[in-house]
Simulated scan of single mutants.
Amino acid sequence: MGAPHAPPSRRRHAQLQGRPQAGRRVRRRRSDRHLQAVWKVKEQLRALLRTGSLEDAATAKEHLEELVKAAARPETNRLYRTVCRWWQEIEVLIITGATTGKVEANNTAIKNIKRTARGYRNPSNYKSVILLRSAVRTAA
């Protein structure tokens, strides 16, 4: 038979039980706080982009800046710098509501047609397929 097994140490026992060790719990809590701070920044940016007036957007931008400072993460700092760099364009988006969504959707549709239309040797047939499929999309 053999010698009886020695009792496992507390750490090994905790591992076998599936319980986190004390050091891991502290690290997990810290990473949860970082994750929550980054999530708040993301949600505030979404709220900023949904605003309907420039005054509301300016207020949302100030709140975003406070959250970025509180998060103190390089990712959020970079995001805020990008928002500041693109602020004029964001203001235009808020005022006009114009986006490039339709153009991007058309480009995606053409890419999908390209992917499925491999093998067309005649460029005019290929062009006809693109036009017909886009006509079907707009009619539907």
Rank of each mutant, 00 (worst) to 15 (best):
H5F: 10
N122A: 04
Q17N: 08
E89I: 04
M1V: 15
E43Q: 14
Q36M: 10
L54W: 01
A47L: 07
K69S: 07
E65G: 03
E91S: 02
V136I: 11
C84F: 01
P8Y: 13
V26N: 01
D32H: 11
S9D: 11
V103K: 00
H63I: 14
L131I: 05
H63Y: 13
H63G: 08
V129Y: 00
E43V: 13
A22L: 11
A47F: 04
N106L: 09
E104G: 00
R28T: 15
G52E: 13
T116H: 08
R78S: 13
A70R: 06
K102N: 09
R11A: 15
T99R: 01
R121D: 08
L45R: 02
A70G: 06
A71C: 08
L132N: 09
L67G: 00
W39M: 14
P20L: 12
G2P: 06
T99A: 04
T116R: 10
V26M: 03
T76C: 04
N122C: 04
R27I: 07
P20W: 11
G97D: 08
S124H: 10
T51Q: 00
A105H: 01
E55P: 03
A70C: 04
V83K: 00
A105F: 02
S31C: 12
H13N: 15
V38L: 06
A71V: 05
A72N: 09
M1I: 14
L131P: 00
W87A: 01
G2R: 09
T99L: 05
